[in-house]
């Protein structure tokens, strides 16, 4: 062995040994940076399963700090909270404790409740399936067998009724008020994300085959949704995807073999993404919630864990950073300081 190699080899081996540690440290640093970046950016509200069996609403900073309960009701589960566009009020569902909350049909369960931004002074609005805020917060849209109904919040009267055009769950109104998105039956395709023009009722496909839980980006031009692509072995894993409203393209935001990704929600500026990572499909709501995560949209696509098969399909994906959050379900984010007295 030449002398040069004999001299370099030990150093090289030492460097190789240190490399994984350095990478881990880099990853931890990146998560710390992300944590600091989002810590002061408003609040997140989410449902958290309690040891006694019910779900309560929990408020926290986006980094998971300053956690506190907004509801504490052993006989009821509070689910799927959403602040009004001005963040002064909160809509959520109230479901009897003991009821298994369906991960994709929760909007048909229990009753819709309107409260102030911190869950105080709750007012039960009735069944109101899939109740969702209008952009001005004066109306809510609902989806039921009767079709899509636009209901006046103040009076409870139905202002408008439309055919549901195949929508069967998870109807959400775009922030600009022009569109609905939701999960629909289209032809023989299963669980298709569809966008509908609120005025004309015309609709188009955003993403076909095995999609659900869509929601709008703040720009009203893109939709975030969960998708379990067909190009996987056996049952496969549900990933978080995004697409423009016209369905012209789509791309993965986060995926991880061994985890089903649901609860996709954007920060109000569209720069960050919240989601949950559940080892069992549906386990987010039907069991005890799932570990939450927060990432920058600019870092997408991110692949978590080893996920060798997924990495082959997305060779340009990043490893992170993903800020881990508590076990939760259906998080929602506001930049408004909802704790300040107004």
């Amino acid at each position: 062995m030449p002398a040069v190699i004999r001299t370099i080899l030990p150093f090289s081996l030492v460097l190789l040994g240190l490399a994984p540690q350095a990478l881990t440290a880099d990853k931890a640093d990146a998560v710390t940076v992300l944590r600091k970046e989002v810590a002061g950016r408003g609040f997140v509200v989410t449902s958290v399963k309690q040891p006694r069996g019910d779900w309560d609403l929990v408020l926290m900073r986006p980094d998971g700090s300053q956690r506190r309960k907004l509801t504490d009701t052993p006989k009821w589960s509070e689910a799927a909270p959403r602040w009004s566009p001005d963040s002064r009020r909160l809509l959520y569902r109230r479901i009897k404790t003991g009821t298994v909350i369906s991960h994709d049909r929760w909007g048909f369960q229990g009753e819709l409740v309107l409260a102030d931004a911190l869950g105080r002074n709750p007012r039960v609005l009735g069944a109101r399936p899939w109740g969702c805020w209008s952009p001005d917060g004066k109306q809510i849209s609902c989806l039921s067998l009767k079709g899509i109904e636009i209901i006046d919040v103040a009076t409870g009267t139905i202002r408008r009724r439309m055919k549901r055009a195949g929508y069967f769950q998870q109807l959400f109104w775009s922030p600009d008020g022009k569109w609905f998105c939701g999960t629909a039956n289209v032809g023989g395709e299963l669980w298709t994300i569809v966008r509908m023009d609120v005025t004309s009722g015309r609709w188009s496909v955003v993403s076909r085959f095995r999609n659900c839980t869509p929601d709008w980006f703040p720009d009203s031009k893109h939709v975030i949704f969960s998708n379990r692509p067909a190009n996987q072995a056996k049952y496969g894993w549900t990933q978080l995807w995004m697409a423009p409203g016209d369905g012209s393209s789509r791309r993965m935001i986060y995926g991880e073999d061994g985890r089903h990704i649901y609860g996709g929600a954007l920060s109000p500026d569209g720069r960050y993404v919240l989601f949950t990572r559940c080892p069992k499909d549906g386990g987010g709501s039907e069991r005890d919630g799932a570990p939450g995560g927060l990432m920058r949209l600019a870092d997408a696509p991110i692949i978590g864990g080893k996920s060798p098969a997924l990495r082959k399909q997305h060779p340009d994906a990043h490893d992170g950073p993903v800020l881990p959050l508590l076990d939760c379900w259906e998080p929602h984010w506001t930049f408004v300081d909802v704790t300040a007295s107004r």
Binding site: L143, L145, R164, F168, Q169, N185, G187, G188
Partner: peptide
Amino acid sequence: LDEHYIGAIVDRYHK
């Protein structure tokens, strides 16, 4: 059907 059922439909006769 759509006044009695609201959910996913697998229709292999959709054409």
